[in-house]
Simulated scan of single mutants.
Amino acid sequence: MRHQPAPPTRFLRVRQDRGHTVLDFRGEIDIVAEVEVVPHLDAATSDPKCRVVIDLTRVEFLDASGLRLLYRARQRVLEQHGSLHLVCTDALTLRVLRITGLARLLPPRPTLDAALDQPEATPGPV
């Protein structure tokens, strides 16, 4: 099922690119953002074989709520036998992803093109 692009929110823009749903996270991804982002994230990860890219290049801050969103996306994509790729270049966010182990489960790509050009694969095991 193909979803219509969601209207942009303060924290998220959803669009289609090369057969993937791209979730552009923006600003501070915290508990306030989580409430706004979850419905869009769930819509993007609800179809069988969904192909999703989460782009964190416009994120200024990511706390535990943001990490929960990434883990939620990963779990939902696994359940749908889809693919999920992450784009991140910020040194602090990359460090948080490494420390928490999410970088192992969702290896960050340096650019959107690098993520979109990745072979289809499901996120790694827990």
Rank of each mutant, 00 (worst) to 15 (best):
D90V: 03
R72H: 11
A121N: 09
E34M: 10
A73C: 03
T57I: 14
I31H: 14
D113N: 12
P119E: 11
V32G: 02
C88M: 00
S46R: 07
A6T: 05
H85L: 06
I29P: 00
A64N: 07
V59N: 01
Q16R: 09
Q75I: 05
V37W: 02
V22F: 09
D63K: 09
L69R: 02
H20K: 05
V38S: 06
V53P: 07
G124L: 11
R15W: 08
T9E: 00
I29H: 02
G101E: 08
P123T: 04
S65D: 06
V22L: 00
Q4H: 07
S65P: 03
D63F: 12
P123I: 01
M1L: 13
A121F: 00
G66L: 02
T89Q: 14
A64L: 14
R13L: 04
V35S: 05
I54Q: 01
R2T: 15
Q16N: 09
D90G: 13
K49E: 13
R15Y: 11
R18I: 04
L94M: 13
D24Q: 15
L112G: 10
P119W: 04
Q16E: 01
E34R: 08
D117E: 15
D42A: 09
R98T: 05
V22S: 02
T57K: 15
E28H: 15
A43H: 01
E120V: 15
Q118S: 15
D30R: 09
D24F: 00
D47H: 12
D24V: 08
F25Y: 06
A103R: 03
L94V: 08
R51D: 07
L62V: 08
R109M: 12
D117W: 13
R104H: 09
D30Y: 06
S83V: 10
L86K: 14
L97G: 07
F11Q: 02
R104L: 05
L94C: 15
Y71V: 09
P5S: 09
T9V: 02
I99E: 06
V96T: 15
K49V: 10
L94A: 13
H20M: 03
D17H: 11
T93F: 00
T89C: 13
R95E: 13
E36I: 04
D90S: 14
H3Q: 14
D30G: 08
C50N: 05
R13W: 01
T93P: 04
L23R: 01
R95F: 02
P119I: 00
G124N: 05
L102M: 13
A73S: 03
I29T: 00
P108V: 04
V87H: 12
Q80N: 13
D117L: 13
L105D: 03
L62N: 04
R10L: 10
E28W: 12
P39E: 04
H85D: 08
P5W: 03
P108S: 07
D113S: 09
D55K: 00
P123M: 07
C88H: 01
H85V: 08
R13F: 00
L86P: 01
